[in-house]
Amino acid sequence: MRQYITRRLLEMIPVLIGISILIFVIFQLAPGDAVSAIVDPKTSAETKAKLREQLHLNEPILVQYKYWVMDILKGQWGESFYYKQPVSRVINSFIWNSFYLSLASFLLSAILSIPIGVLSATKQYSKFDYIFTIFALIGISMPSFFFGLLLIKWFAVDLKLFPVSGMTNPGSTATGFALFKEVMHHMALPLIVLTLGSLAGLMRYTRSSMLEVIRQDYIRTARAKGLREKVVIYKHALRNALIPVVTIFGMSLPGLFSGAIITEQIFNWPGIGPIELQAVNTRDYPLLMGINMLLALLTLLGNLIADVTYALVDPRIRLK
């Protein structure tokens, strides 16, 4: 197993190089260059030319790539044009806010989707199943910008149960548990929006996986042994039904860090999502490339984690 993981990690190197080339080339193809993005349009042509020189923008593309890669390897992801700060610092100051929100939503949807999926499958075509099927349809089709605004209107503006936006109260100095409580209070509404979206899919996935498993011969064997229905379902069936679901969990790792652009924007959550959007609008290429590289790395790690967990839960899979 250790050997397998080491090999997979080594294999990631060429893949990452390939991804870095792709990202670099794509951003080179994008219209406008960094100079037009960072300077005032009124700046003289001379100053612009000087700046181009400074940023190596006149060099051939391969040389520019070399500069970029060398910097990345040194841990310098460049400086954000917009924030005038190192990219790593910009990412670091926003990404964790996204992570907390996404992680909470991920855990909540996992905890809820599995039992609901199992019940929907074991009571297929029952009222319970229909109610949650409709719920899932709503969850999948409801646009988050609309649902988010709806929640703000109902629970923040009308009922005043939750704050309208942000992560903490303006000017808050709370620390420790008080801060945690304050953040949770702010998180509630965006959490509901994000969870509704992912819960629906996971639930349906668990349901169909479970439906397939409970028709298997070994479930009949388990019943023929005299096991209680609960043991049959939650031990014999669920263990098998979760194998594909676990893979999905592993692959959702990059999603935990990439931020939810729309939801975070609507609730003014200081996450990485709106920063990404802003970086696109302001042609903040170093920041965009940094975020993309990070997500590429996380995607590869997520796949590795999915494969490893797959082998852990299914004895038929042996990693070599």
Partner: peptide
């Protein structure tokens, strides 16, 4: 009363 089935390949739970 116990029972054995036709398909030994699929009648045992693969994860136990």
């Amino acid at each position: 009363i116990s029972m054995i089935f036709q398909e030994p390949m699929t009648s045992l739970n693969p994860v136990f």
